[in-house]
């Protein structure tokens, strides 16, 4: 394997079987991809497409049923203990002992990781949680727990960060702080992140790995390529004053969709967006309109609506 590859996944398969069900639920079906060292990859896809399962396999919590996966050159199955020293996995599904204080928890993980809790203290200082350092974590809010998980995960000096919904439960201000902190800490680290907030992905990642239901990789590409692959650049959401016929809407712009009582127009450039907005203003039958640039959510929505896109890398 080339030295520049951090994570190399070949034909990875994961099936969860329950008693009486020999076929099982295939969560990941022969997926293959490579993550270069130092790159930041977002894992996205619909609910149940196997995102968290993939991260848990890479974090050595689950064993794959088939395939060959190496992390930093170590075999995922044979060298799990070595891999655990090189990765940090943070997920809302992972918790800490709540009878202990924040400081006791940090010191415990620092001891088992053989790391320095000072890194965690710096992070907590940044996130204004140091005042809670001697409080038992059972009294923490969901947001404070999310910060504690990250503090534990970031304390370890690792090559690969696997982050699953780490901003879940954080308020807007703290999410911004976390994103900024991660950006400063990422230097040369490889990141794989799951986050349903596209702003987190936009800010932290260059590549996106898209999984689709049934356990397949739909695509892996750079975020720029991905956004360019969409047939429009903006989305204008409009609220009509009354029910409009298709003919009336086409007078504004021919490329549109309806969702409940809302109309959506899809211009392919900023100029077209301006034209649509001018027509909306002059039409008189639209009460409110909002224009925004497209982001990852639009791509996810598109995959979800297209359903059986079978575009494999």
């Amino acid at each position: 394997m080339a030295k520049s590859i951090a994570i190399d996944v070949r034909n990875l398969k994961k099936i969860f079987r329950t008693p009486g069900d020999r076929t099982g639920n295939t969560v990941l079906n022969n997926i293959s991809f490579e993550v270069p060292r130092g790159s930041a990859v977002a894992v996205t896809g619909a609910n149940g497409s196997g995102k968290t399962t993939l991260l848990k396999i890479l974090a050595t919590l689950y064993l794959p049923d088939a395939g060959k996966t190496t992390i930093l050159g170590y075999d995922l199955v044979r060298d799990a203990a070595l891999i655990r020293e090189k990765i940090s996995f943070v997920s809302p599904a992972l918790d800490f002992q709540r009878k202990l204080t924040l400081d006791e928890n940090l010191k415990f993980f620092a001891k088992v990781q053989n790391s320095d809790p000072e890194n965690a203290y710096l992070f907590l200082e940044e996130l204004n949680l140091m005042e809670k350092i001697d409080d038992r974590t059972e009294t923490f809010s969901e947001g404070q727990k999310a910060i504690t998980r990250l503090a534990i995960g970031l304390m370890k000096s690792v090559d690969i960060l696997l982050l699953d919904e780490v901003t879940l439960g954080l308020d807007v201000f703290r999410r911004e702080q976390v994103i900024n902190y991660l950006k400063t800490q990422l230097n040369h680290k490889t990141l794989m992140i799951i986050d349903h907030d596209s702003t987190v992905i936009d800010r932290l990642c260059e590549h996106v790995l898209i999984l689709k239901n049934g356990g397949y990789v739909h695509n892996m590409m750079s975020i720029k390529e991905l956004l360019e692959s969409l047939p429009y650049t903006h989305e204008i959401t409009a609220l009509p004053k009354r029910y409009l016929t298709d003919r009336e809407i086409k007078q504004v712009w021919p490329n549109f969709s309806r969702a409940g009582g809302t109309l959506r127009f899809y211009p392919t450039s900023r100029d077209e967006a301006q034209v649509i907005n001018t027509r909306i203003l002059s039409s008189g039958f639209i009460s409110r309109a909002e224009t925004r640039s497209i982001d990852l959510n639009d791509y996810s929505m598109r995959i979800a609506s297209e359903g059986d896109i079978s575009h494999s890398i």
Binding site: A59, D95, V112, I152
Partner: peptide, 13 residues
């Protein structure tokens, strides 16, 4: 039950 197992295992415990 506490949900701590995953964190422990991925931290070499």
């Amino acid at each position: 039950q506490l949900g701590t197992m995953g964190f422990l295992v991925t931290n070499s415990v």
